[in-house]
Design a protein around this nucleic acid. Sequence first.
DNA 1: GGTTGTGAACAAATTCACAGCG
DNA 2: CGCTGTGAATTTGTTCACAACC
Lengths: 203, 203
Amino acid sequence: MARLPVYLRSLSELHDDKIATVSSERLAEMAGVNAAKVRKDLSYLGSYGTRGVGYDVEYLSFQMSRELGLTHDWPVVIVGAGNLGQALANYGGFRQRGFPVAALVDASREKVGGYIHGVPVHHMDDLPALAADLGFAIGIIATPASAAQEVADALAAAGVRSILNFAPAVITVPEGTSLRKVDLALELQVLSFYQEHQDADEA
Amino acid sequence: MARLPVYLRSLSELHDDKIATVSSERLAEMAGVNAAKVRKDLSYLGSYGTRGVGYDVEYLSFQMSRELGLTHDWPVVIVGAGNLGQALANYGGFRQRGFPVAALVDASREKVGGYIHGVPVHHMDDLPALAADLGFAIGIIATPASAAQEVADALAAAGVRSILNFAPAVITVPEGTSLRKVDLALELQVLSFYQEHQDADEA
DNA sequence: GGTTGTGAACAAATTCACAGCG
DNA sequence: CGCTGTGAATTTGTTCACAACC
């Protein structure tokens, strides 16, 4: 159900515009999908719509936030205080959407001790203590590919059950741990594939 | 075929390890997928394997790079010189994998003129001229959500046919333009959903 | 014997289309 | 009459299993 957050974002826009109810058709348009898909997806949450009318924006938002577990903040830890890690620590979108960056962690002693964009930098070895202390449930891997698996193991060992991996490497996690990945360069490679095929079609 | 880049990365690792041939089984393990899927995917490129032996790492890499359009660099332009845009400009992974950042572009005159991490910062209005000059085919949107559609339109107007959108907004592009999106906070929201459901299962 | 390439079986996701309800 | 909720139909994607080949 990776589309729920997109619906939620659309609902939030509607709410800002003081719109009280919305049809599946309108919501589909905003989310860039098919109306039937919206109804199927929402029906999975329960029967929150009213036939002939649509969905109550506020009520649906609430139910959806509850289902997504967004009724409270989820502090996150970022492992890797390099370029990407620092950038992510400074990215306002995380805090704004309920994922404050509680700590940065790095394997290099040189980077440890200070603050980056207001976020304290700790050593990898302190991960278990930090997890207990700050109670983060989500870890973000922003290290080079070579360190990714090791970091994933350390996060899992520290009790972190959700991992978002930015390193360009395939990693495995224990049963019961959720894993998602974002490979920035991979996205560009997919685009270059389409470019190449556009060009071929034109020739 | 969003899996091809993953295979390519695995092939590159094998090449570094001086391994000349690889079976679909081994490649599947490295890429974290099923062996039959690897064979299906690769057969789409052509019959490059040898029965009883496997695939020639170097030859397959070459064919795959060609198919993906990675035989030459694709310069990219990043629109939005805020936190995220600057971070992406500084992210080594792009250049390293053949996507040099040719320019940063912003709507604010204050940011225009200098260099950020060695990348020149230009004004939005210069986009068409820059496109003609630097020949970028890929644009990265790293603006706030409110500006995303406008930027997409400007990129399309400047002849950019591939867009990677980091703004948390649904945007539309003209027919013939490729669009991919990365929503960082959305990934965390999906993870929080799984967290919530893990917890529920344990209770 | 080992491994590919692929048709056939299966599973998942999407879309259609309409009954049922407000 | 309009719009939801959902079974049925369709499409898409995955996996199996094995003949063909080295």
